[in-house]
Amino acid sequence: MMMATGAEERPMTATDIVSPVKLAHFVLRTSRYAEIVQWYRTVLGAKPAFENELLTFLSYDDEHHRVAILNVPGLADQGEGTAGVHHAAFTYASLTDLLENYERLAAIGINPIYVINHGPTTSLYYADPDGNQMEFQVENYASVEESTKFFYSPAFAENPIGVEFDPAALLARLRAGEDEDMLKKRPDAGAKGLADIKLR
């Protein structure tokens, strides 16, 4: 890519790139409008900043909206084997928050489609009524530097996907007094790849 500099052009360098400061929101279109709006209100604890019969803006923090949902009648369901976004991810403040949210949702019949300790994060994946996948996670390390270091470790090279776990059992251990940092430490499961995990 070339960058104009008055009368001449020069190749763009890394110092010319301006990156965004944060990810603000994502937008879904659906023909299951009321059901999808209710699902996101429930799983995220979100409230509408605006809603009518065509559009809902939802937020769970100080951002005016984190999720927007468009009512588009007559859409086809998502097909298997098509390209697109695999999932969006939301970070919780602690393992306790993550697992108590799991327990709350499970009590009303909303269960993860798979759970996995990736190493850098402990994660629960859900599918909304349209099949869009959402990851709810907690950071396993106290700093970005420590998480990044794990990506360069032999353990990650051997198993870049992670290790599945039982969230109810993990919550019971947490409530029994086991240390959160120790519970977030990924166990050694040997070599694993995509074929070993129920990723969809």
Rank of each mutant, 00 (worst) to 15 (best):
T15A: 15
G109K: 09
G162I: 07
A24N: 13
Y114K: 01
V37K: 05
H86Q: 15
I197T: 09
D196K: 12
K22W: 08
I108R: 12
L199Y: 08
Q137C: 00
K22C: 14
E35D: 14
T121R: 07
P73Y: 02
A189M: 11
T15Y: 13
A24K: 07
T30L: 01
E145K: 11
E63G: 03
T15F: 13
A7K: 15
G109L: 03
E53Q: 13
T122Q: 02
I108W: 02
G190E: 08
L44H: 03
R66E: 00
G193W: 06
L44V: 04
G190W: 13
A195W: 11
D196P: 03
D128Y: 01
D166I: 00
A168F: 05
T13K: 15
G74I: 07
G84K: 02
V37Q: 00
M3Y: 07
I110H: 03
L58A: 02
H86P: 00
E100V: 14
R10Y: 13
I116E: 05
V27S: 07
L55R: 01
D196Y: 10
L199D: 06
P11V: 10
G74Q: 10
A93M: 08
L99G: 06
F50M: 13
A24Y: 10
T82A: 14
E63F: 01
Y33T: 03
R186V: 12
E158I: 14
E146K: 12
T15Q: 15
S123N: 00
E100S: 10
E103M: 05
R200G: 13
L98I: 06
Y114H: 12
T82Q: 15
I113V: 15
F151D: 13
P167M: 04
D97R: 11
D179V: 11
A172V: 04
G84S: 08
T91P: 03
R200F: 02
E103P: 04
I113R: 12
S59D: 04
F150H: 10
E164Y: 02
G6E: 11
S94H: 02
E180T: 12
Q137E: 04
I110E: 06
T56Q: 04
D128W: 11
L124N: 00
Y92P: 01
L171F: 09
P160M: 10
F156Y: 14
S31I: 05
K22H: 10
A168N: 08
Y141C: 07
A7Y: 08
K198Y: 05
L75W: 11
M182R: 15
Y102K: 04
D166Y: 03
G84H: 07
Y40N: 00
V72W: 13
V163M: 12
S143M: 09
F57Y: 15
Y141H: 13
E53P: 03
G177W: 09
D128H: 06
Y33V: 00
S59F: 02
Y125E: 02
V43Q: 07
A195D: 11
D166E: 10
L98V: 10
S19K: 14
I69R: 03
D97F: 08
T42E: 10
Q137G: 09
Q38C: 07
I17K: 13
G74E: 13
S19M: 14
T13P: 12
T30G: 02
Y102E: 14
R173A: 11
A189L: 13
G45K: 05
I110R: 08
L75G: 04
Y40W: 01
K149L: 14
Y126S: 05
T91S: 14
